[in-house]
Nucleic acid binder design. Structure first.
Length: 570
RNA sequence: CGGAGCGUAGCUCAGCCUGGUAGAGCACUUGCUUUGGGAGCAAGACGUCGCAGGUUCGAAUCCUGUCGCUCCGACCA
């Protein structure tokens, strides 16, 4: 491709609505343009990168034995009602109506569609295992689209689904996908690592997310340097000492705490109650009914874990007025002692705790000497707290660390939730009808693209890995006079590389060298070959790897040197 | 959904407080010069100041509403 015939609209300055480096570079390098919030057009260069990533995904899916299909983006609501997700996932749906006013759903994911298809085709255990995948546009009404392609209303996803005749077989399918994902991200030049993850509204037994470390990531990952433990903070656990027991026989005592509003206030003089001797009382509304959630004063509630404990994701923090209606007190003085008519969920770490202090449900008063099992009617104990930096690794006991990351892939072992609901059953060896055991696997293809940029850049622009670069070689003649020695050589190298099947861009613009170099660095072509009168007088051209050093090479060796540089490193 | 900020040329932004001829830089067009890291000079073209009301002799500017965009939050009682 010749630059003058392409559309590569680079920008000197970042558009003001881009915040993070990868979003800025997407726009500045002329890869995408925004249509509206969370909606982007891929320009020719961006599309080339996207196609290369898709191709890597395809090759690895095929290698893992998955079969490519293509499902409709427009879906009937009936199958969502059948799976039970019409209600639980309704917030992410974009819904449209046809001329008869019938409602349709723009697919946010495809478990229901694939399972319906499989239900129609599956009859015998002899057909299993089977895995299917597709690369397709998904639609999600995100609460807040942001950071360009990172969280968009419409995005391209590779989604895959496995069907097996047993739990053990499903585990094998899961492992194949897990391994394929590892290879995919590696081939894209990404340093991604798997972490244990929460299954959330998807349901199912367990899952892993593939994370790309990045300060701008929306996820927090807990990990251990000493062993292999890594988990999303929504899922992570740690070994910590139980709450020290005090005098469990001492009677509850109410004491005045004028002006105390927070846990921290109570740790100061004259009260001096350590945060770990306090019970934090939180009020949540679950389907419009208040519930109390207790964690230790120095701990933080993890809402993702609360989802699992409550068995629903439809809850929210209560408003101040709702709290007053439920407990007769305002935040700052809340407690669960002698609360009988509201369900109380308590974090495991509080089990057996005594000599605790908590609010008295009366402004300006707290209670001390609270023995939680004696004084509070707990409906359910559960792991409800977030792990904090420095706590002991649950595997090896070394201190845990926390870092931010971008989720680029997610694999789930689902079990039979969808196959039972949508009747995807087969006859086993004994002729008995069994629901297939299912797994589902997603890669955010467009997000992966941006994650590569987020990870591979410097002050001058993008540094594309060879595998996904829009063009792998950029030829930069410093003058473009037709017939000149410089231009003739540029054309010759261009023709020879093209004949070798190398995707190469010839910068034939009538611009000053500085402009061409800046643009080549910004877009991030892995290999740049500069041809100018000065070096050509010595029979040389300049080979530069993006982010590497400049190397003068003989003009007749240019093509072979480039081909060598394109070979995969051993 | 709650909070905050921003909407002025293709892009980055100034002007608004204190109402009175709509601006700069970059990009674009033409010409000349220049040609190894985002050139210089000259001339030119490009705007319903997001939209709708209101106040006023007069609104980019003040007021109200609305739409869009961006960020933060949606546990820390």
């Amino acid at each position: 491709m010749r630059w003058t015939q392409a559309l590569i609209p680079t920008l000197k300055e970042s558009p003001s609505d881009a915040e993070i480096v990868s979003h800025k570079l997407l726009l500045r390098a002329g890869l995408v343009r925004k249509l509206s919030g969370g909606l982007y057009t891929f320009l020719p260069l961006g599309l080339r990168v996207l196609r290369k990533i898709e191709q890597i995904v395809r090759e690895e899916m095929d290698r893992a034995g998955a079969l490519e299909v293509l499902m409709p983006a427009l879906q009937p609501p009936e199958i969502w009602q059948q799976s039970g997700r019409y209600e639980t996932a309704s917030e992410v749906f974009y819904k449209v109506r046809d001329r008869a006013k019938k409602e349709w759903i723009l697919g946010p994911t495809h478990e229901e569609v694939i399972t319906t298809m499989v239900a129609g085709e599956l009859s015998s255990y002899r057909q299993l295992p089977k895995s299917f995948y597709q690369i397709q546009t998904k639609f999600r009404d995100e609460i807040r689209p942001r950071f360009g392609l990172m969280r968009a209303k419409e995005f391209i996803m590779k989604d895959a689904y496995s069907f097996d005749s047993s739990d053990e077989a499903a585990q094998v399918s899961y492992q194949k996908m897990y391994d394929a994902y590892t290879r995919i991200f590696e081939r894209c030049g990404l340093k991604a690592f798997p972490v244990e993850a929460d299954t959330g509204v998807m349901g199912g037994k367990f899952s892993h997310e593939f994370m790309v470390p990045a300060e701008t990531g929306e996820n927090e990952v807990v990990y251990c340097d000493a062993c292999s433990y890594a988990a999303n903070i929504e899922k992570a656990t740690s070994k910590i000492a139980g709450t020290p027991a005090g005098d469990s026989a001492a009677a509850i005592e109410k004491f005045a705490t004028p002006g105390v509003k927070t846990i921290e206030d109570l740790t100061k003089a004259p009260y001096e109650v350590a945060a770990q001797q306090q019970i934090k009382t939180l009020v949540y509304m679950v389907e419009d009914k208040p519930v109390l959630v207790l964690v230790r004063g120095d701990h933080q509630l993890n809402e993702a874990k609360l989802v699992g404990t409550l068995g629903t994701a439809t809850f929210r923090a209560a408003t101040v007025d709702e709290i007053f209606a439920a407990l007769g007190a305002y935040p700052g003085s809340l407690g669960a002692v002698s609360v009988k008519d509201l369900p109380v969920y308590a974090d495991e770490i509080l089990r057996g705790a005594s000599s605790m202090t908590t609010g008295a449900n009366e402004k300006g008063f707290h209670l001390r000497n609270v023995s939680i099992e004696r004084d509070i009617q707990v409906k359910q104990w559960a792991d409800l707290r977030s792990v904090q930096v420095g706590e002991a690794c649950p595997k090896c006991g070394e201190p845990l660390k926390v870092r931010r990351a971008i989720e680029v892939g997610h694999v789930f072992k689902l079990g039979t939730k969808y196959t039972e609901a949508l009747n995807a059953v087969y006859s086993d060896e004994a002729g008995k009808q069994q629901p297939a055991v299912m797994g589902c696997y997603g890669i955010g293809v467009t997000r992966t693209l941006q994650a590569v940029i987020e990870q591979c850049n410097d002050k001058d622009g993008i540094i594309w890995p060879l595998s996904v670069a829009p063009y792998r070689v950029c030829i930069t003649p410093l003058g473009i006079v037709p017939g000149s020695a410089v231009m003739a050589l540029a054309e010759k190298i261009y023709a020879e590389l093209s004949a070798q099947g190398v995707d190469v861009l010839l910068d034939d613009r009538d611009d000053r060298p500085g402009v061409k170099f800046k643009d080549a660095d910004l877009v991030g072509f892995p290999i740049r070959i500069a041809i100018g009168e000065k070096s050509l007088a010595k029979g040389e051209v300049e080979l530069k790897l993006r982010g590497g050093v400049l190397k003068a090479i003989k003009q007749e060796e240019a093509v072979s040197e480039i081909l060598a540089a394109l070979k995969p490193q051993p």
